Computed example of a mutant assay.
Amino acid sequence: MPARNHKKNPNPINQQPLADFKVGVDNVIFSVDTAQNRLLVLLVMRQQEPFLNSWSLPGTLVRQGESLEDAAYRIMAEKIKVNNLYLEQLYTFGGPNRDPREKTDSYGVRYLSVSYFALVRFEEAELIADKVAGIAWYPVKQIPQLAFDHHEIITYGHRRLKNKLEYSPVAFEVLPDTFTLNDLYQLYTTVLGENFSDYSNFRARLLKLGFLSDTGIKISRGAGRPASLYKFDAEAFAPFKDKPLVFI
């Protein structure tokens, strides 16, 4: 059998020069609008190239002496005012050619995006319009064409958010200190969909687990029966930490 002629790669990866990077932070800021049962994501209109006048995630390049988390909080503070939020590092997106500037930069700089995802309540979130021509909440199911790979980042963040809600107390980071069980249920149905659990089973399961404390206070909303206000007990939740399917 004749020997196969294997063509050698003229530029194997271990002979390529080391890459130079610029690091950016992009925030996937989710908002839960329980009144209309919508999960929203915050988008801004880009004011410069590349992708001038295109919708994108709020982002920035990291400054000298600035940590990644500080950059993420800086972007949050420039775009939104909110008292209760949850923020977590999501993933690093750094594939070649994810940013058009890589092709025009004479120094061959690569652009990394360290993404964060945040969760806030729609009722509490106040958008900051100063110096921002375009900023808006978009339903996750109706996202327009986005700059860069930001649609992929949102998809990744949405999947992480769903997973977090199943096993972690992330919901209590954005709820007020006291809340009704219906407030909690509405947050879950908005993110996970109404089919994840019916209210009766959800209520019975959480009360049985014992990390919700009844404050003894009841509130009236509309014509229905007064509802009890609860508080989240972090110490009582400790045995369930990181165990799957706690909430569903």
Rank of each mutant, 00 (worst) to 15 (best):
P2R: 10
A3V: 15
H6E: 14
P10F: 00
N11Q: 03
Q16I: 03
D20H: 11
F21H: 13
K22C: 09
G24P: 09
D26L: 13
F30V: 06
L39N: 02
L40Y: 06
V41S: 04
P50W: 04
T60W: 01
L61C: 13
R63V: 02
E69W: 01
L87F: 01
Q89L: 06
L90W: 01
L90P: 03
T92I: 11
T92H: 02
T92P: 04
N97C: 03
K103A: 10
S106N: 10
G108A: 02
S113A: 15
V114S: 08
F117C: 11
A118D: 00
F122R: 12
E124I: 05
E124R: 06
E124N: 13
E126R: 07
K131G: 07
A133M: 15
Y138L: 06
P139G: 07
V140E: 10
Q142G: 07
L146V: 03
I153V: 13
I153T: 15
T155E: 15
Y156L: 11
Y156G: 05
R160F: 12
K162W: 04
F172T: 02
F179Q: 07
N182P: 02
L187I: 11
F196K: 02
S197R: 06
S200T: 15
A204S: 14
L207M: 12
F211M: 05
G216E: 08
G216N: 13
G222A: 00
S228V: 06
Y230M: 07
E235V: 14
K243F: 08
